[in-house]
């Protein structure tokens, strides 16, 4: 049984339909890349999975539990940790307070997050609002990990960051996939890095899933056609 199973979901923003029959599935410990050009429905899919947006039709199950009727905090309680697009740290709290505000018991604690992101350990008492963009992204990942999730959803985690910082974030993602049994759903445009960390991929085009398969089978023709790279 898949850890996360999304079957033929649709989603709407008011009267506008944003998703059409999107399907994907992810097993425990696997990494799934969700790809597509801008505006193709990646973030809408993430919002539907995390219950920040009501799916119009179709089914979303996590660990065998139907998510459709659950509010977003219950989805998080079941083990879905979200690193939202644009980081969105609580800027009036310190780094430590951001992490503790989200903390639930489990393997991920301040020490474990500090080991993954040493820069956060150095800035524990600094206001989150005063961190650089990269550090805020590390904090957003750390905050999601502090909920001790079974699935970590990374929505554009490296967008708008300097190359050095992106490398650091990808390094942390690689560590997560290598050293933990955490399942990851990664939304990103960096094909090269995604090829290194992901087992499977789903490509969205105009709100519909148009390609899915293992990373090995993702040909240049497909990426050229749907991603333009």
């Amino acid at each position: 049984m898949s850890l996360l199973s999304v079957q033929n979901i649709s989603a709407f923003y008011g009267p506008s339909q944003a998703l059409f029959d999107v399907s994907l599935s992810l097993n425990e410990g696997e990494v799934l890349a969700l790809m597509g050009r801008n505006g193709m429905g990646k973030s809408t899919t993430v919002k539907s999975i995390c219950r920040m947006l009501n799916a119009g039709a179709g089914t979303i199950t996590f660990n065998g539990r139907n998510l459709r009727k659950l509010p977003s905090h219950k989805a998080a309680h079941l083990g879905i940790g979200l690193v939202p697009e644009g980081r969105r740290c609580f800027t009036n709290l310190t780094v430590e307070e951001n992490l503790l505000a989200a903390a639930r018991s489990g393997a991920w604690d301040l020490t474990a997050v500090g080991a993954l992101f040493p820069r956060l350990s150095e800035r524990l008492h600094q206001s989150a609002g005063s961190l650089s963009g990269g550090e805020q992204q590390m904090l957003a990942i750390g905050r999601a990990l502090m909920t001790n999730p079974r699935l970590l959803v990374l929505d554009e985690a490296t967008e708008g960051l300097a190359p050095m910082v992106r490398q650091e974030i990808w390094g942390a993602i690689t560590t997560l996939t290598r050293d933990t049994g955490l399942a990851l759903l990664v939304v990103d445009k960096s094909l090269k890095e995604l090829r290194q960390v992901a087992d499977h991929a789903v490509i969205l085009e105009r709100g519909a899933s148009v390609w899915s398969g293992t990373m090995d089978t993702l040909s240049e023709a497909v990426t050229q056609k749907y991603l333009g790279v």
């Binding site: 905090h73 979200l82 609580f90 709290l93 505000a101 989200a102 502090m146 909920t147």
Partner: peptide, 21 residues
């Protein structure tokens, strides 16, 4: 942790929901 979460909810109620609060 209660106070920190409350403070975070003051800033963004939607965002704290995604971390299970």
């Amino acid at each position: 942790p209660f106070g920190l979460a409350l403070n975070a909810a003051r800033q963004s109620p939607e965002r704290v929901e995604t971390v299970g609060i």
